[in-house]
Amino acid sequence: MKKKILIIDDEPDVIAYLMAILQANGYETYSNSNVKNGLELLHDIKPDLICLDIMMPHETGLSFYKRFRQNEEFHQIPVIIISGAIESGKFDFRNYVKDDAIKVPEAYLEKPINVDEFIQSVNHLLETKQLHRSSN
């Protein structure tokens, strides 16, 4: 069965780009331009991975992130944050979410992304998740 990846970004072009890459690599993609009904979306789709633009400095992406990380059912879903706001080496999630109880994102990629790096990151996270699940 194909792995399901949910892309949340307010830019339609970014969604189209990421969808094209992921589909070309054999993933099933879903997208949304906002996080208004984020949790319902997770419930309906049950994605294996989320690509999220935190739309910084607007907090909508972050508040969704915090909400779903606190949700029993979904908190294990790996997240790749994709944003143009901060250089990848300088991204410190704790600058934005000071609550240690909230898990940091599994990966951060800076826009514009490098396709190989992106796909490696997706593959790696899904494999790790697989291992994690089978070891349980």
Binding site: D13, Y17, A20, G84, E110, K111, P112
Partner: peptide, 12 residues
Amino acid sequence: KNILMGLEGGKY
């Protein structure tokens, strides 16, 4: 960076 992402996406 956002525009670049769109351009690269289009190219891809």
